[in-house]
Design a protein around this nucleic acid. Structure first.
Lengths: 245, 245
DNA sequence: GTTTGATGTGACGCCTATGTTACAGCACCT
DNA sequence: AGGTGCTGTAACATAGGCGTCACATCAAAC
């Protein structure tokens, strides 16, 4: 989900410094070039040379930004972007697309697929850095506006704060993500498997019952504010966040 | 042929169960191990010990997933994958590759050749199952579970809620499935056997009279809203959901 | 009207899904 | 090193639903 889940909130001015950036690029020359440059700029680049690797890397740790080459073996950059956008956990990670083609239609396609920005190859290092800064900077305030509200519940992914009925509630990272998921998908039943996929990331080897335990933890966090009844069990199916009854 | 009740009203939690899985593996010990495990997980494994056998098996019936060992006699796993990917009919069948080698280049080669995922031997049964689930789930079509409406009755599988004449009714899992089945197949008589097959699954060993009891339970759930008369008994034949009289 | 098989109905024990607690391993911080 | 907070898992507790039976009632055939 948001980078702030894994790293403590940094002041907005420096939000774009020291970011974890995933570079998905199959041409190793370009890959190295970008990586080196990012390091010099104070970021921590991770590398992936195709879509599958990228997904795996993201599964392990959520980057603050993803740089994707349009042309990739096995899975196109666009497909990768779509996959990232489809998963709740990775939905909001900023993405910059690298493309050799400069024409408008491609640009549109890239942006429509969910990328936040795109750069046409060949590009200058300067330009790349500028775009990265821009996207990271743009992201920071956006996260604070990203406040999610459902009934008496309110989440602020930017500051990682949650409140119920006005009073602040203390949530661990996983509980936060779990509640965030339910609040952005209310009134619908999700199986333990689906919840694992969406909140933890897909194919992590985690017992389904672990979901129950986190539901329990979330409920007891909500209990003081009398909002725990919103999180309902649907026997035989899963769980649901609801406003009804 | 009866209208098939293929999509359960409950979330697609178990959508990946009962899959036909082709296991292509020459070492019979591993083959047996995998087959046994798959059976226990509710799948139906088919076995092939080399590429030719695999192709033949696929020709007869299209599996939902193929597990291929990298190293095979006569035709390598990669070749098999390529063959499968080359044929229009088998192009989209999900493939998981088993490999003893763990190095990056092989991994890339495997994925490039068209496999959807790969597992490095030795692997845990747990991991295997997790990957299988993930791949099958990824393939599974997004079930657009729409609200089902019949007369004054309304079912929403997504939220797992049911209402009759506007008022919410409380149904257990089985009652929900039963009502969903009738609502998607109205005006038609079904025998107890057919109902068992469709709602419980066609492999269960359950007394036919059990259907009567569930009909009874469903009726009493519908009674408060005066909709229980829609569920009629057809003496000597079975039950029917009808709008007529 | 009686017979006879089919269906309705209420109760009961079992089993599984879920709730809940405890614990051991980690990563992080000091 | 030690402490702290969080995580995933196991183990135990509980509850709710399920399948079955026994008996009541009903409907058709005679």
């Amino acid at each position: 989900m948001e980078p702030s889940y894994t790293s403590p909130p940094t002041p907005p001015t420096e939000a774009y410094l020291g970011a974890n950036i995933l570079v998905v690029e199959d041409e190793s020359a370009i890959q190295e070039l970008i990586a080196l440059n990012l390091q010099q700029a104070g970021h921590e680049p991770k590398l992936a040379s195709d879509g599958a690797e990228a997904l795996e890397s993201v599964r392990e740790s959520l980057p603050d930004l993803v740089l994707v080459d349009w042309m990739l073996p096995t899975m196109s950059g666009i497909d990768l972007v779509k996959r990232l956008r489809a998963n709740e956990r990775t939905r909001t990670v900023p993405i910059i697309m690298l493309t050799a083609r400069a024409d408008e239609s491609d640009k549109l396609l890239g942006l429509e697929s969910g990328a936040d920005d795109y750069i046409t190859k060949p590009f200058s290092i300067k330009e790349l850095n500028a775009r990265i800064k821009a996207v990271l900077r743009r992201r920071a305030p956006q996260m604070t506006e990203d406040r999610v509200v459902f009934k008496a519940l309110s989440l602020d992914p930017g500051t990682h704060r949650a409140s119920a009925n006005g009073q602040e509630i203390d949530l661990g990272p996983t509980e936060f993500k779990l509640l965030h998921f339910f609040m952005t998908h209310p009134e619908r039943v999700y199986s333990r498997t689906q919840i694992l996929d969406q909140v933890w990331g897909d194919h992590v080897f985690i017992e389904e019952r672990t979901v129950d335990v986190h539901i329990r933890r979330l409920r007891s966090a909500l209990e003081p504010s009398n909002t725990d009844h919103l999180l309902q069990t649907v026997r035989g199916s899963g769980y649901r966040l609801t406003a009804i009854a």
